[in-house]
């Protein structure tokens, strides 16, 4: 498996110059931490939600090129979007990761209806640059790196919805 499948140029670009890097005053911003217990990576997502819009978003923490670039691309994709759009992106992104998790299980036909199915129900969502991360699914141990910031964002949105 070629390394270039994993480390696409756009990924390295986001890694070298991450977008929306930094912190937001919290409060009022919501601060959510995510950990990858396997490798010690941590991501902190700062989230400003106004009405039904993600008005600002910043990323702090440390991690590998995959987790950092995924967080960077996520921040660019989600900033300014409505909560519903952000959730649709999360579903689509995780779908892109787990469709292949199903395939790895070796049984795409009879696999449980998981998030892969949901991705198919989000055809209107454009992942754009994020599709560069598709290569990650060929390196299963790195999937958790790619999804770390997304799970953290999701947690933040869930918390925002209940408080």
């Amino acid at each position: 498996m070629a390394l270039e499948d994993l480390y696409r140029e756009i990924i390295l670009d986001h890694y070298r110059s991450p977008r929306n890097r930094g912190e937001l005053q919290s409060p009022p911003a919501r601060r959510v931490e995510g950990y990858n217990p396997l490798c010690g990576d941590e991501v902190v997502v700062f989230l400003d939600v106004d009405g039904d819009k993600v008005t600002d978003l910043k990323i702090a923490g440390q991690g590998c090129s995959i987790s950092q670039s995924s967080a960077s691309m996520m921040s660019a994709a989600v900033k300014g979007k409505t909560l519903a759009e952000a959730r649709a992106l999360i579903r689509a992104f995780k779908g892109m990761m787990s469709i292949h998790e199903h395939r790895l299980d070796g049984d795409p036909e009879n696999g449980e209806a998981g998030e892969g199915e949901i991705a198919a129900t989000e055809p209107e969502v454009k992942l754009g640059d994020l599709e560069a991360l598709q290569g990650v699914v060929k390196f299963p141990v790195r999937i958790k790196c790619a999804t770390l910031s997304w799970n953290t964002l999701q947690q933040g949105l869930d918390e925002a919805a209940t408080t």
């Binding site: 390394l3 994993l6 396997l38 490798c39 010690g40 990576d41 440390q62 991690g63 590998c64 090129s65």
Partner: peptide
């Protein structure tokens, strides 16, 4: 990042651990 180091090293057949 150690993860990235060990991934590139793996391509050369060099197995090192990355993590805590």
């Amino acid at each position: 990042h150690p993860h990235d180091i060990s991934q590139v090293l793996d391509q050369a057949g060099v197995c090192v651990r990355a993590g805590h």
